[in-house]
């Protein structure tokens, strides 16, 4: 069970993230999971100094666009690029856009973390 978890929507994402930034919380990471026809995205924050963590979760359709939080937390830029290239999560307005080639190469499997894609082979074949 994830402690201090709050359900949000993509429309309230930036507003909720700003609250963490205002409270001087540290961005820890984001975890993306494939739920079949949707993606689940969970953002984790930590109040510094200290050890308590809080999380926010949203569920979005695979073709939906979500706003980037890298304008508030630059630290999120790598994980947002990773979610785009591994899961196909469309993140709008990333501070640096690696164009799907941050960890993967041009001949890597496509969207390798998506459940219905094969584990290996060019283009997920």
């Amino acid at each position: 069970m994830i402690e201090n978890l709050k359900e949000i929507t993509k429309d309230t994402l930036l507003q909720e993230v700003q609250k963490f930034a205002d409270a001087k919380a540290r961005f820890v990471t984001t975890v993306c999971s494939d739920l079949g026809d949707k993606l689940e995205v969970t953002y984790y924050f930590n109040y510094s100094p200290g050890v308590d963590m809080s999380a926010m979760r949203m569920v979005v359709d695979k073709n939906e666009e979500v706003p980037s939080i890298s304008g508030i937390y630059l630290a999120a830029v790598l994980v947002e690029n990773e979610m785009f290239e591994q899961y196909g999560l469309k993140v709008k307005g990333m501070a640096i856009d690696f164009g799907g080639l941050m960890l993967l190469a041009k001949d890597s499997p496509v969207l390798p973390m998506v459940k219905d894609k094969a584990a290996g082979g060019k283009g997920g074949e």
Binding site: R26, S48, P49, V51, A75
Partner: peptide, 17 residues
């Protein structure tokens, strides 16, 4: 804190974490 760094890197900036 805003950059979300951690470990010795964070502690060297005065954050006890």
């Amino acid at each position: 804190i805003l950059l979300g760094i951690n470990g010795p890197h964070l502690r060297a900036s005065g954050v006890k974490e």
